[in-house]
């Protein structure tokens, strides 16, 4: 008995799709390299000069940056708090197991997706133009940013809760508010707190550079030290940011582990 191996179709035998994707990627790399002017002279002299200056930090600058570092954390907390609280009603409206009307959900989600697509630095630039220089514009930018982020995380969490308690509340004659308070909130509370901490982590990182545009916090010192070519002080500012970010991350990770 003669058996032959089934022949693979031409497309698969020569890996047409794989090769096409590979060629397209190479083509895209070449095009983007042209668009960005890759391959300009890399003056390693200047670059290493910068690193050499930063390798000798001016430790006496530490007392000056403690207040702005604390302000950075304050901005992150206030911004996260405002944004995350504001996201709760909007997330409820766009969850399919709370609001049955698909058009209402669609419109809310569409608007929120637009809000979410603006990077926080651009929000900060806009708010500095509107509100003026200072920590308040940073807080506004962080609020809007965390609003969009928390909205998405929260409505997805609400949509995946156990339907049993919701149906039980409805069957027992509960209205929508009672369903939310007694069936939805107890199920998502832990997740909400964990998302809150996660948003806070991201906001601490973001608020460290917001000041570069004049939106308060440590970023302003980044800007001034760089402009005055005091790279030894820039190094201290960056180290300060690193310490704060690592500490907040570690704390928030501990708390999130305790929550889950």
């Amino acid at each position: 008995m003669k058996q032959s191996i089934p022949k693979r179709p031409m497309m698969k035998e020569w890996h047409v799709i794989g090769f096409t994707i590979f060629l397209l990627l190479v083509f895209a790399v070449i095009l983007s390299a042209q668009a960005t002017g890759v391959g300009q002279d890399f003056s390693s002299e200047q670059f290493f000069d910068l690193w050499a200056k930063m390798a000798n930090p001016d430790w006496s600058y530490i007392p000056d940056i403690i207040t702005p570092l604390l302000q950075t954390i304050q901005m992150a907390i206030v911004g996260t708090l405002i944004g995350c609280v504001a996201a709760i009603p909007v997330a409820l409206v766009s969850a399919s197991n709370i609001v049955r009307n698909p058009y209402v959900r669609g419109v809310v989600r569409f608007i929120m997706n637009l809000v979410r697509s603006i990077p926080e630095m651009l929000l900060a630039a806009l708010f500095v133009a509107v509100v003026g220089i200072g920590a308040l514009s940073g807080v506004c930018a962080l609020s809007v940013f965390s609003f969009g982020m928390m909205f998405k995380l929260l409505y997805e969490a609400i949509e995946t809760v156990d339907q049993g308690p919701i149906e039980a509340m409805r069957a027992a004659g509960g209205n929508r508010n009672q369903v939310i308070v007694f069936a939805v909130i107890p199920q998502v509370l832990n997740q909400y707190l964990s998302f809150f901490l996660y948003t806070l982590e991201i906001n601490v990182r973001a608020s460290a550079v917001l000041g570069y545009l004049g939106a308060g916090g440590i970023g302003l010192y980044l800007n001034t030290t760089l402009e005055m070519f005091r790279y030894d002080r820039t190094a201290v500012v960056i180290l300060g940011i690193l310490v704060v970010v690592v500490l907040v991350d570690a704390l928030s990770n501990k708390l999130r582990e305790a929550l889950s």
């Binding site: 604390l70 302000q71 304050q74 907390i77 206030v78 708090l81 509100v131 200072g134 920590a135 308040l136």
Partner: peptide
């Protein structure tokens, strides 16, 4: 939260 709010000046709107 109180500490965080104390660091932000809400009156400085242009």
């Amino acid at each position: 939260v109180i500490w965080a709010f104390s660091g932000i000046q809400f009156s400085g709107i242009k």
